[in-house]
Design a protein around this nucleic acid. Structure first.
Length: 406
DNA sequence: TAGGCTAAACACG
DNA sequence: CGTGTTTAGCCTA
């Protein structure tokens, strides 16, 4: 399996690699103390292209000057030692990051978002029991958290934070609230960060930068105005949608115990971590456009396609987990980041799926074909973390043919 | 037009 | 049923 091949321990190399920037670099341009919608937009637009390579010797390019949510690179401490995520477990990094400088995880210091520290102590990390059963002590209350929900009430909602935190403006608070299906005045509507960012934040705060879906839900319930109405499931659907479609997130399968069955986690891709941000989730549309042109152009096909939509998806997963370690999702992600690189490509049949075609300027994301459940347990962390690394270094994303086929 | 959100169909375990 | 994938429609900036 190329797995092994790809598993050059990404974490080792990159995450904790020597060249990595140190936490101390967080001195980037300060973000505006207040985030305005436009800032957000700017931030977003700046997320893009940044060749991974540069990240290495470049002190982290801040996602944007106005990086509001502290989406900056994670501190080395959090990433762990050579073993990356694994070490993380051992280092008992709790979600609350006991003692973790908020500047690191949260918004950069000085940005006035000190409130994030509060957010970080989300009770949503029930996975902990899973992943970190080995570490313990400092671990957050293992599933114990009496349902995050219960605490939510007393939890600091973005708004309450705003109220109690000088640094956080109401607007900022709103941003943390993905528009509640209900009350969405204009303000709220456009000021909250997109789901992808919230998810990013949730994962970023989580030990190992990974969480189970349920925990992500919990995080949202605790840190956003979601979950208010138990009946509303739309936001969960949205979360899943974002997880699946955004290249900054990847699914990993982890065996929590000898005989136990693997648990799926969603975590930030190394790239997302390094780049300190996530890309737009909607990028996949671009592909669609392209697809339209290059493909059989029938976009409207619904039912028929659906049929194979599912099949395809599953298939991909399987094949992926089987032979295509690293997803194209990541691939696409990289594309975004390094849009102009030469695609050396050369290997891979696995990538033969993306249409990507012209990565024209934008990020032709490959819709789908992303998720690979990496088995962190078996192949070892190095594995999953690693292949991505090699992968994107080895070849450039662009190449992929894309799943246009269909 | 791009990005974001939501709904929904579908597959799989 | 929960989860993950994908498509599509609508909305906002």
């Amino acid at each position: 399996m190329d797995f092994s091949f790809h598993s050059q321990h990404f974490d080792r190399v990159q995450i904790s690699g020597p060249g990595d920037s140190k936490p101390g670099h967080l001195s980037q341009p300060e973000a505006p103390s207040q985030f305005s919608v436009s800032d957000w937009a700017r931030w977003r637009s700046q997320l893009t292209p940044m060749p991974p390579r540069q990240y290495e010797d470049y002190s982290f390019p801040r996602v944007a000057d106005g990086e509001p949510y502290g989406l900056g690179p994670l501190p080395q401490e959090l990433l762990g030692g050579p073993n990356g995520y694994i070490d993380l477990y051992r280092s008992h990094v709790t979600p609350t990051m006991a003692g973790t400088p908020s500047e690191v995880l949260g918004p950069q210091a000085g940005e006035g978002h000190s409130d994030w520290s509060l957010l970080q102590s989300s009770p949503a990390f029930k996975d902990q029991s899973y992943n970190y059963h080995q570490l313990e002590p400092l671990l957050p209350p293992p599933d114990s958290p009496p349902s995050p929900l219960s605490e939510v009430s007393s939890y600091h909602s973005p708004h309450s934070l705003a109220a109690s935190s000088p640094g956080m403006t109401a607007q900022t608070a709103d941003r943390l609230s993905p528009r509640s299906s209900t009350g969405d005045n204009n303000q709220e509507r456009h000021s909250h960060p997109p789901y992808s960012v919230l998810i990013y934040q949730a994962l970023k705060e989580a030990p190992g930068n990974k969480l189970q879906l349920q925990s992500i839900y919990s995080w949202f319930e605790a840190n956003t105005d979601k979950g208010g109405d138990p009946n509303a499931k739309g936001w969960q659907n949205s979360i899943r949608h974002n997880l699946s479609m955004n290249a900054g997130f990847e699914a990993v399968k982890e065996e929590v115990g000898p005989g136990k069955r693997a648990v799926n986690f969603w975590r930030l891709t190394p790239e997302a971590i390094r780049s300190g941000g996530i890309q737009s989730t909607t990028r996949y549309r671009k592909l669609q456009h392209q697809k339209k042109g290059m493909n059989s152009g029938h976009r409207g096909a619904t039912r028929q396609q659906l049929e194979f939509k599912g099949l395809h998806a599953t298939k991909v997963i399987k094949s992926r987990s089987a032979n295509s370690p690293h997803d194209e999702r990541a691939e696409a992600y990289h594309q975004r980041q390094k849009i102009n690189t030469n695609h050396s490509l050369g290997h891979e049949q696995r990538y033969m799926e993306h249409p990507i075609g012209p990565v024209v300027g934008c990020s032709p994301m490959i819709p789908g074909n992303n998720t690979v459940f990496i088995d962190t347990m078996e192949s070892g962390p190095a594995f999953d973390v690693g292949y991505n690394h090699d992968w994107y270094r080895a070849h450039d994303p662009l190449e992929g043919p894309g799943r246009s086929s269909a």
